[in-house]
Simulated scan of single mutants.
Amino acid sequence: MIATLLTRVGSTVLTGFVGAVAYDGAKKAVGDGTARDGAVSALAWGLRGKRRLETGAEHVRLVTGDLVAEARERVGEQAPPPGTGDVGHDHDH
């Protein structure tokens, strides 16, 4: 019974010690700015990636619009002005 109690106490003390060491290490890393610098760098890369995706998506949208306009021209339809859409069809489907 005493051995079990000592084992549990030792385990608790060891867990507390490891937690304290980890906390101190994290506190030092944040204090040095290492973790913050890493987080800022990761966010900067994320923002660069987001901009590239947005640029690519805009390019795809413009190319698709050009293709649709050219296809409509080939079948004799007039392409609507940008941003107005297909409101007021004057032909039957």
Score class of each variant (00 low, 15 high):
residue 75 V to D: 04
residue 34 T to N: 10
residue 30 V to G: 02
residue 87 V to K: 01
residue 5 L to E: 10
residue 66 D to W: 07
residue 76 G to F: 13
residue 4 T to D: 13
residue 41 S to T: 13
residue 32 D to R: 13
residue 21 V to S: 10
residue 30 V to F: 01
residue 21 V to N: 14
residue 48 R to M: 10
residue 72 R to H: 12
residue 46 G to N: 06
residue 28 K to P: 03
residue 9 V to M: 01
residue 71 A to H: 10
residue 5 L to R: 01
residue 3 A to C: 14
residue 70 E to T: 14
residue 77 E to P: 02
residue 35 A to F: 05
residue 55 T to F: 04
residue 46 G to T: 08
residue 19 G to Q: 04
residue 73 E to Y: 15
residue 78 Q to F: 09
residue 48 R to P: 06
residue 92 D to G: 15
residue 34 T to P: 03
residue 76 G to L: 12
residue 2 I to G: 13
residue 12 T to H: 08
residue 81 P to Q: 15
residue 7 T to Q: 08
residue 63 V to Q: 15
residue 47 L to P: 11
residue 64 T to D: 04
residue 22 A to D: 14
residue 11 S to T: 11
residue 22 A to K: 14
residue 5 L to W: 12
residue 9 V to L: 05
residue 87 V to L: 07
residue 7 T to G: 09
residue 86 D to K: 12
residue 69 A to V: 01
residue 83 G to H: 07
residue 65 G to D: 15
residue 21 V to M: 14
residue 62 L to A: 09
residue 69 A to G: 08
residue 63 V to T: 13
residue 37 D to M: 12
residue 66 D to E: 02
residue 35 A to R: 00
residue 21 V to D: 08
residue 50 K to N: 03
residue 4 T to Q: 14
residue 16 G to Y: 00
residue 29 A to I: 02
residue 81 P to E: 14
residue 44 A to R: 15
residue 22 A to L: 12
residue 27 K to Y: 06
residue 63 V to W: 11
residue 21 V to Q: 15
residue 63 V to L: 07
residue 32 D to L: 14
residue 78 Q to D: 02
residue 56 G to D: 05
residue 19 G to V: 10
residue 66 D to V: 11
residue 44 A to I: 10
residue 11 S to R: 05
residue 27 K to V: 06
residue 49 G to N: 02
residue 23 Y to C: 09
residue 47 L to Q: 11
residue 59 H to E: 03
residue 73 E to H: 12
residue 13 V to A: 00
residue 37 D to T: 01
residue 52 R to W: 13
residue 76 G to P: 05
residue 27 K to L: 11
residue 19 G to I: 08
residue 22 A to M: 12
residue 68 V to W: 01
residue 49 G to H: 04
residue 56 G to M: 03
residue 42 A to T: 15
residue 22 A to C: 12
residue 72 R to V: 10
residue 25 G to W: 00
residue 37 D to W: 06
residue 47 L to V: 15
residue 46 G to V: 11
residue 19 G to H: 01
residue 75 V to S: 00
residue 32 D to P: 04
residue 73 E to Q: 10
residue 79 A to S: 00
residue 7 T to D: 15
residue 27 K to M: 10
residue 82 P to I: 08
residue 90 D to K: 06
residue 29 A to Q: 04
residue 86 D to P: 01
residue 84 T to Y: 14
residue 42 A to Y: 15
residue 52 R to V: 13
residue 83 G to F: 07
residue 22 A to S: 13
residue 35 A to I: 04
residue 86 D to C: 04
residue 25 G to K: 00
residue 6 L to Y: 02
residue 28 K to V: 00
residue 87 V to Y: 08
residue 7 T to H: 03
residue 72 R to S: 09
residue 38 G to V: 11
residue 36 R to F: 13
residue 86 D to M: 04
residue 66 D to G: 04
residue 23 Y to V: 04
residue 6 L to H: 11
residue 83 G to N: 05
residue 83 G to P: 06
residue 12 T to E: 11
residue 73 E to C: 12
residue 39 A to F: 00
residue 67 L to R: 02
residue 14 L to T: 15
residue 46 G to S: 07
residue 3 A to H: 11
